[in-house]
Simulated assay, not measured.
Amino acid sequence: MQLSTQSLKHQFLMAMPHLEDPNFAGTLTYLCDYDDDGTLGVVVNRPSDFTLKGLFEQLEIESEPGPHNEVIVYNGGPTYRDRGFILHRGNADDWDSSIQVADDIALTTSMDMLHAIAKRKGPEHYIVALGCASWKPGQLEDELKQNTWLTADGAAGILFDQPAEQRLSAAAGSLGVDLNLMTRDAGHA
């Protein structure tokens, strides 16, 4: 893969077993934006200790009763931990502060979606995360050259249909790879 000409947008970024950075060890990150300013993604397999109900209470958003209140909020990455990032199926044009990542996946950072979810009028499939992952221009490319990460095409089914604990292995499986069989020692031929 030629990184200089191919976008990393709508890619899964899988931490290789030897990556020991506590922010990223064992993570699956969905890359949402990739341009001359750098790369932005959301970690999608690190559940936090609280639910949307707790987030709604903290933000003083009234929520209707329902199972949406028990949806887990994710730790989306070490950057902007006080901001919400919502990955969802659907069209970015339906929400403020949204970007279309792929045909069927968008990223929204606006409160209008949280209010809609609280009122049970939001998208059917979504992941709410606090924080994101970001890389300066060229930084992620350098890390990829060092075999820190493995990439695979993004897929809505892995994001929204797989339980959090199975997303990393499902993304690796899309490449025919079992990360559990890989050594923790990095090497180059």
Rank of each mutant, 00 (worst) to 15 (best):
L144F: 01
I86G: 02
A116L: 10
H88R: 12
P47Q: 11
S97L: 13
L130W: 12
G90C: 09
L87A: 07
Y80C: 12
A133C: 10
P67I: 07
T108W: 05
I105V: 15
V71M: 08
H88E: 10
G138C: 06
T148H: 00
A92V: 07
I99D: 00
M113P: 03
Y74L: 13
S97H: 09
A102R: 03
T51C: 04
Y30A: 03
D103L: 12
V42N: 02
L31C: 07
Q146T: 00
Q139T: 08
D142S: 08
E70G: 05
P137Y: 13
L140F: 01
V71I: 12
R89Q: 11
I105W: 04
E143N: 00
L87M: 09
E60N: 13
S134H: 06
R81T: 15
F56D: 10
I61P: 01
L130V: 09
P47N: 09
F85K: 05
I72L: 13
I105G: 04
N45V: 08
M113Q: 06
C32S: 11
L130Y: 11
G76F: 02
S134Y: 04
D33M: 07
F85A: 04
G38D: 07
V42Q: 02
K53R: 15
S110E: 04
L130M: 15
L114V: 11
A118M: 08
G38C: 04
V73I: 15
L107G: 00
I127R: 04
E70A: 14
Q146G: 01
L59N: 12
E57K: 15
N147A: 01
P137L: 08
L59V: 06
M111H: 10
R120N: 12
G122Q: 07
E60T: 11
P78H: 11
N45H: 08
P137K: 14
P67A: 12
R120D: 13
L130G: 13
V73C: 08
G66E: 09
Q58G: 04
L87H: 03
E141G: 01
E62W: 03
S48R: 03
D103C: 07
V44C: 15
Q100A: 13
K119V: 02
G41E: 05
T108S: 12
D36G: 05
G84H: 03
S63A: 14
A133H: 00
Q100T: 10
V71E: 12
E62Y: 08
R46Y: 00
P137E: 13
R120I: 08
D36M: 08
